[in-house]
């Protein structure tokens, strides 16, 4: 055992092992970069002002994808309206108010479970509760509510982490100066945790913007010749549109497919990059 442990060739073993692990990491990361670059290159030529600002025509085989872009914007904003206040409030509860007891543990378990539920099951739930039971119909409202509940766990857990990172001493000092708990939170803690919360919110909304399954039966429209008029209208959306034109429409020009994928990817990646930048800038600037 000891001789094996100290044998001469153990450094060779280490060199070999490190090479294998490094290769594994490279093979994990390369396809990610490859995917992004491939879509940027293939889709780039499809992008034009008409493509971004026009309506689809000829059975979606020509024209632009404006209604899908606007629809995804609406859905993302609609999701934010519900999930951001609720998610941040829940995070405040867990970080600032909750005691370590059975109920709190149950809440945490519930959040973990919400994070694990398959997206298509959210779609079923949205259909059952919002579309049918509450009779919102297939609409932006129903889809946004469904996406909101799906995004909650991301927003809650990242926001809670950001709140907990604010030094405890700020709370003690503020309370000792006659502040109530809420005054302390609203005047100091939230302000300091803001970059972290913002990062979490954007990452959550990024997920909502790219999802297809939850909106399949709650708000996505196959084709709309106009923009939605109200929250009770169904809407086209980029991810669903990409699904439709790559599987449901025969003889679809490949250019339009790659172009749509590119727009969706840029939409999502922009949010991702913004979140990363906010996080690293806040880390560099932080004084505690």
């Amino acid at each position: 055992m000891m001789t094996k442990f100290l044998s001469r060739n153990r450094h060779t073993v280490q060199r070999l092992g490190f090479s294998v692990i490094t290769l594994v990491a490279v093979f994990t990361v390369l396809p990610i970069i490859g995917t992004v670059i491939y879509i940027l290159v293939k889709g780039g030529s499809a992008i034009s002002w008409e493509f971004l600002s026009g309506f689809p025509h000829d059975g979606m085989r020509a024209g632009g994808i404006l209604p899908a872009i606007i629809g995804t914007l609406y859905l993302t904003l609609g999701t934010a309206v519900f999930s951001v206040p609720l998610g941040i409030a829940a995070a405040i509860y867990l970080s600032e108010y909750a005691r370590d007891n059975q109920v709190t543990r149950l809440i945490r378990l519930a959040i973990i479970n919400l994070a694990g539920i398959p997206s298509v099951v959210y779609g079923l739930f949205g259909l059952g509760l919002f579309v049918l039971f509450l009779q919102f119909g297939t609409s932006i409202l129903a889809a946004s509510l469904t996406l909101s509940i799906m995004t909650l766990p991301v927003i809650i857990s990242t926001s809670e982490e950001a709140l907990r990172a604010v030094p405890q001493s700020f709370r003690t000092v503020s309370i000792s100066l006659g502040a109530t708990r809420w005054q302390t939170i609203s005047r100091i803690i939230l302000k300091e945790a803001l970059p972290g919360i913002l990062t979490g919110v954007i990452l959550g909304l990024e997920r909502a913007a790219g999802e297809t399954a939850p909106i399949l039966f709650t708000g996505a429209a196959f084709f709309l010749p106009r923009l939605p008029h109200s929250a009770f209208d169904a809407t086209m959306a980029l991810p669903y549109h990409l699904f439709v034109i790559s599987t449901q429409v025969p003889e679809m020009p490949i250019q339009i497919q790659y172009g749509t994928a590119l727009v969706l990817l840029v939409f999502v990646l922009t949010m991702n990059v913004i979140a990363t930048v906010i996080r690293s800038r806040a880390r560099a600037r932080r004084q505690w």
Partner: peptide, 14 residues
């Protein structure tokens, strides 16, 4: 407000 407190480590608010 009537009974103020100064702590061991100087904690100025941000």
């Amino acid at each position: 407000r009537k009974v103020g407190m100064v702590f061991a480590r100087p904690v100025t608010l941000p």
